[in-house]
């Protein structure tokens, strides 16, 4: 498999009135060509910030990439000037935002909004751009696109708008598409349609997708690989099978236990008690320690290293340490 995007030890901070918030604290992951990588975690864990960092869309000030690399086609996006980044944004890497109701400009027609991206990146005439826009609208399943081109966003339903937003992201045939909670604002039935669309598009165009979500149901449907984030760090990565059937990190287990499942009988929903740590002053050890039922003294003091568990399966947890396994064996 070909690596298309590499994120290495990414650190992002925000300066606020209350002090500096370390929103992303050393995130690393790879994205392979043609796959869907899901980044999962509860709100505030830094998954959106990670996505926006790749696009160079962290508002600066107050936000800043303080350390780390984002490697794409031989260049480090984290170090690029905005001018050079602009050539990549929308053309090679594109992004879909959460709420289709607010992601489109209410005073411009759909056609204008679809075409301006193409015109920005490609030397192409207006009529050709329009042809391409129509093609994209057909691809994302919008009926009678010719008449729809001249309409404004408020004339579309929520699901249709999200299709438009997806068309916007695809219009320049990017290699990577980042989708930030693309189904959260939609009805469940529409959600399913949009997820189908994602799979369909990936088959047709071979685009790699980074899917940011807190919804494990969505992840189960479309993700090839999963990265679980907690308090600004990736705590576990693995294939969909790894994460759903052999979760290793107590947080991943907690997440899975807090979601209703039909495949398990008499499965009780167990919420994770407590709330994530304050990222104004992140703890030196494992951030999950206060909510972890297996917490050890070491977890408070030192952050665990990444440990390989399976072929694609990695986890950052002291429970993987030999000494912890010995201790647990003794206890039993």
């Amino acid at each position: 498999m070909v690596k298309i995007l590499e994120v290495k030890e990414l650190h992002v901070s925000f300066t606020t009135f209350g002090g500096e918030v370390h929103a992303v604290r050393g995130v690393s992951f790879d994205l392979y060509k043609g796959e869907t990588l899901a980044i999962v975690g509860e709100s505030g864990c830094g998954k959106s910030v990670t996505a926006k960092s790749i696009m160079g869309l962290i508002p600066n000030p107050p936000g800043k990439i303080t350390d780390g690399k984002i490697l794409f086609k031989g260049s480090n996006l984290a170090a690029l000037k905005d001018k050079d980044l602009r050539k990549i944004r929308g053309a090679d890497i594109s992004m879909i935002f959460q709420d289709p109701m607010t992601a489109l400009n209410p005073t411009l027609t759909i056609g204008t909004q679809l075409m301006e991206g193409i015109i920005q990146h490609q030397k192409i005439s207006r009529s050709e751009a329009q042809k391409k826009a129509l093609e994209m609208m057909r691809l994302v399943g919008i009926p009678s696109p010719e008449s729809r081109l001249k309409q404004y966003p408020h004339q579309f339903s929520g699901g249709m708008r999200q299709r438009i937003v997806i068309a916007l992201a695809l219009v320049c045939e990017p290699e990577v598409m980042i989708a930030d909670e693309p189904t959260t604002a939609l009805d469940v039935t529409i959600q399913a349609q949009i997820l189908d669309l994602f799979r369909d598009i990936q088959k047709k165009t071979g685009v790699s997708i980074i899917l940011i979500t807190h919804d494990l149901g969505v992840v189960a449907q479309v993700a090839d690989r999963i990265a679980v984030m907690y308090a600004g760090k990736v705590v576990e990565t693995g294939t969909r099978r790894d994460i759903f059937y052999k979760p290793q990190h107590p947080y991943t287990k907690g997440l899975l236990n807090s979601v209703p499942r039909l495949d398990l009988e008499n499965a009780e929903l167990i919420p994770i008690a407590g709330s994530p740590p304050d990222l104004f002053a992140p703890p030196p050890g494992c951030p999950f320690v206060a909510r972890c039922q297996y917490a050890m003294e070491v977890c408070d003091k030192v952050y665990p290293q990444k440990t390989k568990y399976g072929k694609e399966h990695h986890v950052n947890c002291w429970l993987q340490d030999e000494r912890a396994k010995q201790m647990l064996a003794l206890q039993r």
């Binding site: 008690a273 709330s275 304050d278 050890m296 003294e297 003091k301 030192v302």
Partner: peptide
């Protein structure tokens, strides 16, 4: 990292629930 740190953490009751600010 010292070996003796690998013991279950002593917990203060309700610690996980505290609101920080």
């Amino acid at each position: 990292v010292m070996d003796e740190w690998f013991v279950p953490k002593k917990r203060i009751l309700g610690e996980a629930e505290t609101v920080i600010r």
